[in-house]
Simulated assay, not measured.
Amino acid sequence: MTGLLLPRDRNKTLTCLVSTEPVVGAQHRSVQRLQFFLSESTWDHEKVNARRVEMLLADPATAPHPGGVLVIDDSGDPKDENATAHVGKQYLGSVGKIDRGVVTVTTCWADERVYYPLHAVPYTSAHHFPNGKNDPGFRTKLQIGAALARQAKEAGVVLRAAAADCAYGDQDGFRRELADAGLPFVMAIKPRHGAWAYGGQAYTPVDAARALA
Rank of each mutant, 00 (worst) to 15 (best):
M1C: 08
D9T: 08
N11Y: 10
C16H: 13
C16D: 15
L17E: 03
V18T: 09
S19Y: 11
T20F: 04
E21T: 15
P22C: 08
A26M: 09
A26L: 10
R29T: 08
R33T: 06
L34F: 08
F36S: 08
F37V: 13
H45W: 14
E46S: 14
E54C: 06
M55C: 11
H65S: 11
G67R: 08
G67E: 14
G68N: 08
V69A: 01
L70D: 07
V71T: 03
V71R: 01
I72M: 04
D73F: 09
D74S: 12
D74A: 09
S75M: 08
T84P: 01
H86K: 09
G93N: 05
V95A: 04
G101R: 05
G101S: 05
T104M: 12
V105I: 05
T106I: 11
T107P: 05
A110I: 11
A110W: 01
H119E: 13
A120I: 01
V121G: 03
P122I: 12
T124G: 07
N131G: 05
D135Q: 04
G137T: 02
A149K: 04
K153D: 01
E154C: 01
A155H: 08
G156A: 03
L159H: 10
R160P: 00
R160H: 11
A161D: 07
A163Y: 10
D170Y: 01
Q171V: 11
G173C: 03
A179G: 07
A181P: 04
G182L: 10
L183P: 06
L183N: 06
P184C: 01
F185W: 15
V186R: 12
G194P: 07
G194L: 06
A197Y: 00
G200W: 11
V206E: 14
D207P: 00
D207G: 10
D207R: 13
